[in-house]
Design a protein around this nucleic acid. Structure first.
Lengths: 258, 258
DNA sequence: ACAAAAGTGTTATCCTTACACCCATGT
DNA sequence: ACATGGGTGTAAGGATAACACTTTTGT
C-alpha cells in the first residue's frame, strides 16, 4: 500500500516534468444509453465531486493529440469523433485550495506535485461522441471511480466543469443540424425509432415520426438492412446502418440538414 | 535612440514577468473596405512577414479580457463583436529560430526576452468584427507597421497565422447564416446594396437582388431611413440602419436565417 | 427619351408540417 | 379480432429561386 503510493507519486512527478505547465485538456466524452445522453465522469483525488477526464500536454505533443490520448486512456477508443470546442481561461476557474486539500487527503503531496497543481491552468476542451458499447472503461492513476452520468442529472462538478459540459451539449445540438450524430453515438445497426429518440433526447422535444423518417432517408446516408423481430406485437422495424462512403461524402460536402 | 531601445527592453521584460508563460492570444480583427473583407495585420520585429496582432495574458487576467485588451490596443475600440473561436496548439506551430533572429536584428535580445520567446506557445484565437471607420490604428511597442490587408490577397504570414485567418473566415461564413454581420462591419447607415455586396464578398458568390432584399427585410431588424441621393442617374436607394432593440432580440432568440 | 439601378411582383418548385391511412405482428 | 407500433401518403402552408415589371433619377 505504501509502495503503491510512492509509485504513484513518482509516476505523477515524471509526467509533470515532461508536461507543458499551465495548460491542460478536458474531454467531454458523450455516449447514449437508456434514451439519454451520458457523459463520462470521474472522481479524482477522492474528491466528493465528479470531474471530466482530462490530462496534461506533453512538451513535444500537439494539444489535439493530448485529447486523443485522454480519450484512449479512458475508453480504449482509438478512432472516434473528436473535436476541440472551446478554451476555458478564466483566472479563477479552478478552486486551488480544494485541489491541494484533496491531494493531501490522498497523500499525494510532494513539493513538486503541490506546486504543479498550485498553478493557474488554462484548459482546452474537446467533445468526443462515442458508442458506449465499444468503450472499455478503465479507472486509472489517481482517479478511483469512472462512470457514465446522464446529462440531465448532473449536479455540481469540480471547477468550471458544469460550464464545460453545458457548452459541449450546446455544440452537439448545433452539430445535429448538419451532422447525423447517430453514426458516432449509436451501435452499428439501429432502428429508425432508435435514431429518432436520440434526436429527441438531444433536442429535448418530440418529433413527428413520419416526417423524421422521410427527412433522414432523403439524406441518403443510411442503408436498409433486414428486419428486426423484437417479439413485440407489431410490425417489425427495419434495421439501418450508415453507409460509410456516403457519410464521408456528406461530411466533406459539409451539407446542412436542418 | 539607444535610450529608446533600453526603454523597450525594460518595458517588454516587465510585461513578460507579469504574464502567463506559454500561452498567448491572437486576434483576427476583420473589417470591410473596398468591397472586400480586410484583416488587421502588422509587421513585428522588423520581420518580412505579416502577423496577426496578439498579446500575452497577464497572470491574473481572464483570457477573454486579454483579447479585449489586444483589440483595444490596436483599434481603440472598447465594445465590438469579439468571440473566441479556436486554440492553436501544434507543437511546432512557431518557427522559433525565426523569432530569435528577428529579435536579434532589432536589438531586443536580453536573456529574459530570448528565453521567453524560446518557449513553446499555445495560442487562443479570437475573431473581432469591426467598422473600419471607427478604428484608430496605432502601431505600438515592437511592431512598427500596422494596416488593413484584403483577405483575398494575403500571402505567407508568420507561423501558422494563415491557418488562423482561414479558420476565422470560415467562422464568419457560418455566422452569416444566423447573424446579420453587417451590424458590426458596416457603418451605422448603409444601403441595401452595401449589405448585399458585403454578403456576396463573404460568401464569394452573387446573390439575387430582389430575393436578398426580401429575405433581409423579413428578418425585421432594419429601420428604413431617408433616401440617399448619390448624384447617379438612377433611383435613389433608401438608407437603412439596424434596430438595436430588435437586433438584440434576434441574437437572444438565436434565430437562424439561412 | 433613355439608361441605369432601385423597389416590388409573379410564378414554379421545393420543403416542412400535420395528420391520415394501411400494414405486419404477437396475443 | 385487435391493439400496437412501423411504413407510407396527402394536402396546406411557407420558403426559395428565377425572372419580369415598374419607378425614380441624371444626362
Amino acid at each position: 500500500m505504501k509502495d503503491n503510493q510512492e509509485d504513484l507519486i513518482r509516476k505523477l512527478e515524471l509526467q509533470i516534468k515532461s508536461s507543458v505547465p499551465g495548460h491542460s485538456v478536458d474531454c467531454v466524452i458523450v455516449g447514449y444509453k437508456d434514451e439519454e445522453l451520458q457523459v463520462l465522469m470521474l472522481k479524482q483525488f477522492n474528491s466528493d465531486k465528479w470531474a471530466l477526464p482530462g490530462g496534461f500536454i506533453y512538451k513535444n505533443e500537439d494539444i489535439d493529440f493530448a485529447a486523443v490520448r485522454v480519450l484512449k486512456e479512458r475508453t480504449g477508443l482509438e478512432y472516434s469523433f473528436l473535436e476541440q470546442f472551446y478554451t476555458f481561461g478564466k483566472y479563477k476557474r479552478r478552486n486551488i485550495e480544494e485541489v491541494i486539500n484533496d491531494l493531501k487527503n490522498i497523500g499525494l503531496d510532494s513539493p513538486l506535485i503541490q506546486s504543479w497543481f498550485n498553478q493557474r491552468f488554462i484548459s482546452t476542451a474537446y467533445l468526443a461522441l462515442v458508442d458506449i458499447n465499444e468503450c472499455n472503461l478503465k479507472p486509472k492513476g489517481i482517479s478511483n471511480n469512472c462512470d457514465w452520468r446522464p446529462v440531465a442529472g448532473i449536479t455540481e462538478l469540480m471547477f468550471d466543469h458544469n460550464k464545460i459540459v453545458e457548452k459541449a451539449i450546446e455544440k452537439i445540438k448545433k452539430q445535429l443540424n448538419y451532422l447525423p450524430v447517430g453514426k458516432s453515438l449509436l451501435p452499428k445497426q439501429f432502428t429508425m425509432n432508435d435514431l429518432q429518440r436520440l434526436h429527441e433526447s438531444i433536442l429535448q422535444k418530440k418529433l413527428d415520426r413520419g416526417n423524421f423518417q422521410k427527412k433522414i432517408l432523403k439524406l441518403d446516408v443510411l442503408i436498409r438492412r433486414e428486419k428486426l423481430y423484437s417479439g413485440a406485437a407489431h410490425k417489425a422495424p427495419y434495421l439501418y446502418e450508415f453507409d460509410d462512403e456516403k457519410y464521408k461524402k456528406l461530411l466533406e460536402d459539409g451539407i446542412a440538414f436542418l
